[in-house]
Design a protein around this nucleic acid. Structure first.
Lengths: 234, 234
DNA sequence: TGTATTTTTTTTGTCGACAAGATGCCGACG
DNA sequence: CGTCGGCATCTTGTCGACAAAAAAAATACA
């Protein structure tokens, strides 16, 4: 089978191999190309990318640090599972991070930030117009991550990105039942959030972010309730 | 010089070397045995612990993932600096995590949790009685980490532990000026927090946690204001 | 035929060695 | 006397190979 990740002996700059493996695995995990529970074979990856096992292992250690993979000692490392039993902890943290990052963005954003945020919103609108649910997921993530960057709190940013990535995985699982009627509402809410940030209206930013988070959480919960049969193994 | 980390060729079980290096480096970084900016030489560590560079590198990658060390590409990896210019972001996140973890503990704690929390509080009280400021820092961290565990939100727990560790480092820097008059107040506040959690009084838990966080933040700020001269290089 | 035990195979964790990149030193030149 | 370029040294990033541990397979025995 022909793959875009060729096995030909390509020359790579020093220190670039790790990043390559890391990015590939990360994307494949978040896009569910590697579904939760998939074993990751180091040798196979090494042959596929025509490099030694050392950089692959380093990338795996980094992914394990972010919780995307789980390494069983002396056994294979597998893609981490999504903890459906404790999704409420995810929703709780997600909502809080939506709120604090948007609040902080309204407080601390600087001249260039609004342009970046609006650019991301344009990307999201394009994805909505194209009815590309996968692109919506990705651009929505980038939109809120950019807001978090404008808030300038690295601790919140790190946790928020982790949550957004996990959300990307969850949404992917329920991609088949993605309701493309709601996104228009999301786009409007995004515009309102931008407006609140631009006018430095912290209270409005908090209120809008809370409502936005509630929307997304509610939608995910609906998806889960709808497709529960498929998530429970026989 | 004789060290407890001997260089004799000791036999180690498979997979134990990485954890050993990780724990040693982590402790030395948080205790400022390795002050911020210290270069970490892989070969030197490998000789000191009588092992290859591979497990040392894996431990360094994990530490880099937690932000405790910074790896300059193709150059040495150094202990991460404390960002004094943006301490307010640290205080902000710290206060929020104090609040949400204490709230969640009041909501979700289970039978065994209170005993564990009280045990940690006893450790803290013992450190206060012994007037051991270093032990106070460590036991205070464990006390709040145990509360966060009782809250059962892994996302908050991870961020909170990271913040508590960073706080441990900051307090260590100002250890010389540690005022051992305040800790008695801390112990009382801890008792009040335990009471609020036990009675599942979420509002009280939130209020007490906020006050507690404000106390600690205020004390650190006072320390910094007092010793600013030493923090500014010539 | 089913189960327990041994053997084989596969995969991980660790090691020593080599090559790329960077830092510092030394000499040449303006 | 100061600055630039080349050389030596040091550290890191990567590689191939070996050993330990677990899984899988094969065999012996009841």
């Amino acid at each position: 089978m022909k793959d875009k990740t060729d096995g030909a002996p390509v020359e790579r700059r020093r220190g670039e191999g790790v990043k390559l493996v890391y990015d590939i695995l990360r994307d494949e995990i978040l896009d569910l190309v590697l579904p939760p529970g998939s074993p990751i074979d180091e040798i196979q990856l090494a042959e596929r990318l025509s490099m030694s096992r050392t950089p692959i292992r380093e990338a795996l250690v980094r992914l394990a640090g972010e919780g995307l993979v789980t390494t069983l000692p002396n056994r294979s490392t597998v893609v981490s599972n999504v903890d459906f039993l404790n999704l409420h902890t995810f929703f709780d943290a997600m909502t809080l991070m939506y709120r604090v990052t948007t609040r902080l963005a309204a407080e601390h954003h600087r001249p260039g930030d609004l342009a970046a945020i609006r650019a991301r919103q344009a990307d999201f609108a394009a994805a909505v117009a194209a009815e590309d649910a996968l692109a919506m997921i990705a651009t929505n993530r980038d939109f809120h991550a950019t807001i978090a960057e404008a808030g300038r709190n690295p601790y919140y940013l790190a946790l928020f990105c982790r949550l957004l990535d996990e959300g990307r995985r969850i949404l992917r699982i329920y991609y088949s039942s993605f309701d493309d009627r709601l996104p228009a509402r999301y786009a409007d809410e995004h515009d309102a959030i931008i407006e609140a940030i631009a006018t430095r209206d912290v209270a409005a930013a908090d209120r809008l972010a809370t409502a936005h988070a509630d929307q997304i959480v509610h939608q995910i919960q609906q998806m889960i309730a709808r497709d529960r049969r498929q998530t429970v193994p026989l």
